[in-house]
Design a binder for these strands. Structure first.
Lengths: 193, 193
DNA sequence: CCACGTGTTGACTGATCAGTCAATCATCGC
DNA sequence: GCGATGATTGACTGATCAGTCAACACGTGG
């Protein structure tokens, strides 16, 4: 009989350890041994649960993506107007867990691995499609035919600010970045009128 | 007596091979052997000229940075007004060699390695500082006190569009992206007036 | 208390790779 | 020609690592 509690807790611990390890090394070039050690188990167990190193890493990316999605939903709750929803969408990318050092490092590393890893590529596409469609559906009532272009621009601003942040030192100011994008969007929307 | 012609041609070939190899694999996770083979020499020779793998890779990044700088200078030649200079600065990041597949892959990979490699970090800073100061000096006459914020926004747009392009499939349209940023900047500048 | 399935591990293997070294090859000044 | 100096390599080493395997631990149902 499987023991789902142990199984899921081990998997969770390994995924967390993988993200932490990626953050510490700043690369996807981590070892199964390192991840397992950090999770307090043997490397053989990591293989037992995930089968391969790639599976651990894509599970980690999936976990980050889920966190981002959850953050987005949380911020959308109770928000109605399109402009306010856009604010929430933008803020979601700079809030919650998304701005933890190791998450940024992992995110960046996944962008790289999407170049050659099929599954990483697929997951990255999911994120991009999700972001674009969220932006688009709230921009359409505000900007009509310009919505697609505006959505691309806002998405680029989000990714651009986010990734530039990855190479900074010192304290980050996620809320400030979100506010900056927001203000820019205000100007772009107003100029259309 | 050293034979500078051979020395430089070998070094150049190895750096080109390194960029090509990074592009093919989509990672900084390339082997000295692979680079050397692509350059038509033994891996021992690569070590002879560069001392270590890291030295080859940072040389590759330096080469890309030099190419970007050269492209920038070329596009600035004969251009005088600040608005036109801004257009040239933006276009430089999307023109020349910068948009070749392997250069994009290498650029992305360097962003990652800047997380843990001191020299990569330094080089990335050089690029960022250069871009920011170029934008700033031409934005100041147009936007006064808002110039710093605008410079950050434009820089984020450049990096954002560039990096999003890295995960695309199909044909790229670098000129179109530059034009998009340009149009956005027009709106932002006008709104200030 | 036994049998069975799951959890868990240490030890091992096969492969890969960065970097070294001693030895040849080529070229140039003399 | 000849020695010196750089160019170049094949073979080697030491280390690292993903993944395997056989065995042991342990709780549960019978």
């Amino acid at each position: 009989m499987p023991r789902p509690d142990i199984q899921t807790s081990r998997r969770r611990a390994l995924v967390q350890a993988a993200i932490a390890e990626i953050g510490k090394r700043g690369t996807l070039d981590v070892t199964v041994g390192g991840i397992a050690r950090r999770a307090g188990v043997s490397s053989a167990l990591a293989h037992h649960y995930f089968g391969s190193k790639d599976h651990i890493l894509t599970a980690a990316m999936r976990h980050i993506l889920q966190g981002l999605r959850a953050e987005h939903m949380r911020r959308l709750r109770g928000v109605t107007g399109p402009r306010e929803r856009l604010r929430a969408t933008i803020a979601a990318n700079f809030g919650g867990q998304s701005f933890r050092r190791e998450v940024i490092a992992a995110w960046l590393a996944f962008y790289v691995s999407a170049q050659h890893d099929r599954e990483a590529r697929r997951l990255l596409r999911v994120y991009q499609r999700r972001l674009r469609s969220a932006l688009l559906s709230d921009l359409r009532p505000l900007a009509g035919d310009d919505a697609p272009q505006l959505a691309d621009t806002v998405a680029a601003l989000i990714d651009g600010f986010y990734i530039r942040e990855a190479s900074r030192t010192g304290a980050a100011d996620p809320a400030g970045l979100a506010a900056r994008i927001d203000a820019t969007l205000d100007i772009l929307l107003e100029a259309r009128a």
